[in-house]
Computed example of a mutant assay.
Amino acid sequence: MSYASTLIAGPANLLAPVEPSRRSAWAQLGTDVTGTGSAQQALVTAGLAGWRIRKVPMSGSDISRDGVTTIDNPEKVMLVYTDPATGATRYLSTVGTKYGVHQNEAGAAVLDTLVAESGARGTGYAGQLEGGRKTFVTIELPTTMYVDGHDAIQLHLVVFNSHDGETAFRVMIVPFRPFCANQLPVAIANHVSCVSIRHTSKSEINTEEIRSKLGLLYDYGTAFESEAKKLIRTEMTNREFDDLIREVWPVKANASARTLNNARRRNDLLTGLWTSAETQAHIRGTRWAAFQAVTEYLDHFAPAKNIEVRANRVLVSEDVAKRKQAAYDLLAA
């Protein structure tokens, strides 16, 4: 029996977000590639195909009274790519000489396998972050789960590639609450939520290896639903929510006036989401609602220069991920 077939059907009206204009971070930063016939076509549509990423030797120039001396760097190379829109060569990052390049197309076979294996209709969004140093493609699994029978959660497989010398090629499963466009990527003990392949000189993106681990990712989805049910069935008081905020965002007693003012504004927003937001209406007063309030703040209300900057943080910031995990761990304890 496939994972999708074990999920519970539910009322369709719970799938609509409260604010039609609110979109996920994937939608804000990526291109809608639904309807493309294959992963390769999705990459083309999103401008991620044909980059021909390659290594270029690094050197520098030392200018002195004796003239200009060119100095080679034997330990580092530049990664550059061909801009498919203009044909121009553009800089990506600086990496070690043994760095293994994985072209964006290298993940296409993995994507098509994931789509076929999961029963999804195809890919959802594809895009790039940090000037192309990171790329992503999402796949929405075909059936929605309903926590305790009524709170809708979708599961998305997200494929991240990177060209930054730091991040691995990853396939992740990310729970997503469409009612408020919250991403809920948290670790659950003894369950695998991510498969990674490092960029080494001998590494390859092995489709069969990833395919063999899909069952572990789907097991995570089942475990997430079980844990979410516990949270939604556990009541929580306003005082307990205040304690949660202080644990997730600790502030020293001798903090500066600016820090204290920022904390007050943050706490007011969080409390408003907890007590009054329409997105928590049918789960209000539960630990599940507390987790959603914290996540909604991080995903949609945390101060940022613009919504794109905030969306980028949602996808790549370690601080955002750690605060979501901290909130979950405290609530699930």
Rank of each mutant, 00 (worst) to 15 (best):
M1A: 12
M1E: 13
S2P: 12
T6W: 04
A9Q: 14
A9D: 11
A12V: 15
L14T: 14
L15M: 13
A16L: 15
R22A: 13
A27V: 07
T31P: 00
T34K: 15
G37A: 14
S38R: 04
W51K: 07
R54D: 00
M58L: 13
R65S: 12
R65Q: 10
N73C: 09
P74I: 04
T86P: 02
T86I: 09
T89P: 01
Y99F: 12
H102G: 05
A106F: 05
S118K: 04
G122V: 04
G122M: 07
G127N: 03
F136M: 08
L141V: 04
T144E: 06
I153M: 01
H156C: 06
T167K: 12
R170T: 12
R177E: 09
F179A: 15
C180Y: 06
A187M: 11
S196P: 04
K202V: 13
S203L: 04
I205S: 08
E209A: 13
I210L: 10
S212D: 07
S212Q: 10
L214I: 12
L217G: 06
Y220S: 06
G221Y: 07
T222N: 11
E227A: 15
T237P: 01
E247F: 12
R265H: 13
E278C: 03
A281E: 08
G285T: 00
T286I: 01
A290T: 06
L298W: 06
A302N: 05
K305E: 12
V309I: 11
L315W: 04
